[in-house]
């Protein structure tokens, strides 16, 4: 990885993390794909894009989860939810699953962003 790619990679992480946090305010969690997508576009690569997006959303959602744990006791709600499935006292499993799914959505968004930009930009250059 050259220096430029590294900067883009890290910028993608930062961008997707910030976007993941901002987009969560809308209440539409599906928009998190956009956060990863942005990282992919920035990286101009499906590979680096998915990694950058994944890590970024992981950090963004991780921050939200951490903030929630500190300020809002979501463990009780997760335990209540888990008890429907006969599972209690496993809020920490939910925390891990949530940030891992955040990582996954970032990866998918990043791959899409990196791929689509590669499809669009070469065409533009040919013109």
């Amino acid at each position: 990885m050259d220096k430029k790619q590294l900067i883009l990679f890290l910028s993608g992480i930062a961008l997707s993390a910030i976007l993941a946090w901002i987009l969560s305010i809308t209440g539409i969690w599906q928009l998190v794909i956009i956060a990863g997508f942005a990282a992919g576009v920035l990286n101009y690569s499906m590979g680096w894009g998915c990694l950058s997006g994944g890590v970024g959303v992981f950090i963004g959602w991780g921050g939200i989860v951490l903030n929630g744990i500190i300020n809002n006791n979501p463990a009780a709600l997760l335990d209540a939810f888990g008890s429907i499935m006969g599972l209690t006292g496993i809020a920490w499993v939910f925390y891990i699953l949530i940030v891992m799914f955040g990582f996954l959505f970032g990866v998918l968004g990043g791959a899409l962003g990196g791929g689509i930009i590669r499809l669009i930009v070469p065409k533009t250059r040919e013109k």
Partner: peptide, 17 residues
Amino acid sequence: LGNILFPGKGIWKIPGE
């Protein structure tokens, strides 16, 4: 599940206090 578990909705918007 996404509406309950993922940040932006569900448990992350329910104010404990």
